[in-house]
Every structure is written in C-alpha cells, then in structure tokens.
C-alpha cells in the first residue's frame, strides 16, 4: 500500500523534476567511432535477487557528459594518459629499468590487464589492485621508491594501463583464493555505516536511477575508473570515490589503499563483470 502510493506519486513528481537532468539511457557508447562499449548487460550470477541487468555509470549521465567520453580528443582524462606514457618509458631507480624495459609497449603488454584486476597474486598470497602491482614493480624490479597510493602519478599510470583494455568485459575472479577477500568486500558493501546509517547498497542497489537531492544515483560501478570528474576536474581512483561515498554517510572512512578498500574494490568490480572497461571515463 505504502509502496503503491509512493510509486504513483513519485512517478508524477519525477517526470516534472528530473527533466533537466535526464540521462540518455538508450544511447550507445562508441569511443572514437571504433571501440564499442557494453554499457548495459545481464547481471552476473552472484547478483541474483539484486539485479537482472547491470548498467554502467555512463548511462546515468547527461548527454553532454556522455559525449565527452565518445572522443579521446574531448576526454579530459587523456592528458593524464599522455603524462603517464612519458613515465612508462623513463628509467627510474637503482636497476636502470623503466616500465618498458620489462614490458615493452603498453598496447601489447597491458591488453586485458585492467579487466581482471583486482586479482589474486599467488606469490604474494594476496589480492592485488593495479596500484599494488605497480608499486611492486617499482620497488622490486626497478629499485625505485613506491608511489603514494592515491598520488596523481599513480592514478595517471592506472589510466594509461587501462587504455588497451577499453571495450573488453570486466572479468574479475571471485572464487578460489580470492573468495575470502570478496566475501569481506561484500560484507562492507551491505554494512550501514555512519550516523546516517547508509550502506553502499542503500544508494546503489535500492535507489539507482533515483535522484538524491541533485544527484542521479547510478549502480555505483567501477568499470570506468579511474574517472575524470567534472566536479573536481581531475582523475579519481576507486578508493577515492569509496572514501567520498562513506564520508557522506557521516562515517569514519577507511584509508585509500587499506585492506578494506582493496576487498571492497574486488567486490564492487565483480558486480560489474560483463560491462566494458571504460577507463579513463568521464563523470560529473
């Protein structure tokens, strides 16, 4: 009864209020006229009961914001990619190596990598994010200082590494040795944090497509990360986004790079299994 009433009334109010911010749900994302992205697809099996279909954050944005991601010349994140390309080829550390000394070109060596991270690392016995793997290379193969987890240089490099995976389906493994980390991330996703007592799921599962004040709620997918946000005019990592969302519940957040956020990143990535890697994407 409550729900029925809400549905009817909300329907009326919605069409009037949201008109200024309508997203192009049916628009197709084709980047540079050649990379076809899957922005809506069948939900992965583990989401049964929650979603039948999953949608990229791109489908929730305005046509203007959407357009910025359709052409690399318009995409403001590409400056960061160019910056990182220079670093990729630059020797650093005591071993006289650059990234390219071991890996060659980004296009050839990194194709598919972004799609499967975070990923279990057998030797280290842990689930690793791209950032963790980059720092492992810097320290152990280059003899260079690790970068700060949330630093610009680090985020730039994750953007560069994502480029040859664009259009490939996100496909993180959640079983086997990664499973316990995945479970931990899932628990965090459904925990109602802070004085507002809100879980990720309250906004991104129960209320996607609804407005919360001026914000059009998406499904909170990470296939576009790192994301160039028009609001802060820079690239943002997944952990920075998680931090912001948890802070908004009037909670004490976890730290960028913390084990909690690594677990959460794996879990949230798995909710988007099947969507195309869009990184670096553009959002508001």
């Amino acid at each position: 009864m409550k729900d029925a009433l809400r549905g009817v009334l909300a329907g009326v109010a919605l069409s009037a209020l949201a008109s200024g911010a309508t997203a192009q749900e049916d628009a197709k994302l084709i980047v540079n006229g050649e990379i076809e992205m899957v922005t809506t697809t069948t939900a992965p099996e583990h989401l049964e009961g929650a979603f039948r279909e999953i949608r990229s954050g791109w489908t929730f944005r305005t046509p203007e914001t959407q357009a910025l991601q359709m052409d690399d010349f318009e995409n403001p994140a590409m400056i960061a990619v160019d910056r990182a390309q220079v670093v990729w080829d630059a020797v650093d550390g005591t071993e006289g190596n650059s990234c390219s000394s071991c890996h060659g070109t980004v296009d050839e060596s990194m194709a598919g990598v972004r799609a499967v991270y975070p990923k279990w690392n057998e030797d280290a016995g842990e689930v690793r994010t791209l950032e963790m793997q980059i720092n492992d290379c810097r320290e152990n193969r280059m003899g260079a200082e690790p970068w700060d987890y949330g630093s610009t240089g680090m985020i730039d490099m994750t953007a560069l590494i994502s480029i040859p995976s664009r259009g490939m389906p996100v496909n993180v493994a959640i079983d086997g040795p990664a499973q316990s980390t995945w479970e931990k991330g899932k628990e965090i996703y459904y925990t109602r944090f802070g004085q507002l007592e809100l879980a990720c799921a309250n906004c991104h599962e129960d209320n996607y497509d609804n407005l919360i004040r001026a914000d059009h709620l998406s499904m909170g997918m990470t296939n576009g990360f790192p994301v160039y946000r028009l609001r802060n005019t820079r690239l943002n990592s997944t952990h920075q986004r998680f931090r912001g969302c948890i802070r908004d519940t009037r909670a004490e957040t976890f730290a960028v790079g913390s084990p909690e956020f690594v677990a959460l990143e794996l879990y949230v990535a798995s909710r988007g299994n099947g969507l195309s890697v869009e990184a670096p994407s553009v959002r508001n």
């Binding site: 944090f193 004085q195 909670a251 957040t253």
Partner: peptide, 10 residues
C-alpha cells in the same frame, strides 16, 4: 552506529 564520523570530515 557503525564507525560514526565527525560530521562530514571522514
């Protein structure tokens, strides 16, 4: 509350 914060400071 779970992990209550100091307003919106994180």
């Amino acid at each position: 509350y779970i992990r209550p914060g100091n307003a919106f400071t994180g």
